[in-house]
């Protein structure tokens, strides 16, 4: 069973439809799940506060080796801290979350994702495929080895290359929204489901 962590923001109906599983904020249900998805919309600090009661359960599951997928803010929460607000993240990965500078913000729309290493999430997905993004911050991992894919965002004559996916062992994070990325997104979710 896949637990899709519900933090009361946004609708997760199509994540559930694509993955199966249950939408839940019940720690016991999350504990029993064999995979966890953490979608995220909103402010880093505010969402982390809502996540606080589930933090231990989620970290235990990650340490037990259960596959974990963070989407958008859910990926950013894997890191230590964010420029967006005070407070700590889940600190699974070292590094922080920074704001885009010199380009139009937010970065909205379909952009290309280029894998930076082997990662089972991208199996069967073409190099440079388009995924849907909407965000103003991106992750800055200390250990560059965790970067699974990169994306470049060019606007106003400036270009920012940022990590659009991370993965290490059983922990995955994507900055884009697979549940809004049509066929490629469904393929990626299917890859996660089959892990």
């Amino acid at each position: 069973m896949i637990a899709i962590v519900d933090l009361g923001i946004g609708n997760l109906a199509n994540v559930r439809k694509a993955l199966g599983g249950v939408i839940t904020s019940d720690p016991y249900e999350i504990e029993r799940a064999d995979k966890i998805v953490l979608p995220g919309v909103g402010n880093f600090g505010a969402v982390m506060k809502r996540l606080e009661p589930l933090k231990g359960t989620i970290l235990d599951a990650i340490n037990e080796g259960k596959p974990f997928l963070g989407i958008c803010l859910g990926m950013q929460l894997l890191f230590e801290w964010s420029e967006e607000s005070e407070g700590k993240g889940l600190e699974v990965f070292k590094g922080n979350v920074v704001k885009f500078k010199g380009v139009r913000v937010p970065h909205i729309g379909w952009n290309q994702v280029f894998p930076a290493k082997e990662c089972p999430l991208f199996e069967g997905i073409k190099n440079g495929s388009y995924f849907y993004f909407v965000h103003s911050y991106y992750v800055n991992p200390q250990d560059k080895e965790v970067i699974a894919a990169i994306t470049d965002y060019e606007s106003k004559g400036n270009k920012v290359v940022f990590p659009s996916a991370v993965c290490k062992d059983n922990v995955f994070g994507v900055q884009f929204h697979p549940e809004k990325s049509s066929k490629n997104g469904l393929k990626l979710l299917e890859n996660f489901r089959r892990l």
Binding site: N11, A13, V134, E179, S181
Partner: peptide, 28 residues
């Protein structure tokens, strides 16, 4: 729509309040 469609979508028309917007976003 939120359940069936896998591309982003926007909803509008005659919206007047924060409350209505909250409901529309919550619906997906």
């Amino acid at each position: 729509i939120a359940e069936e469609i896998y591309v982003p979508f926007t909803v509008g028309g005659g919206i007047k309040s924060v409350e209505e917007i909250r409901e529309i976003i919550k619906s997906g």
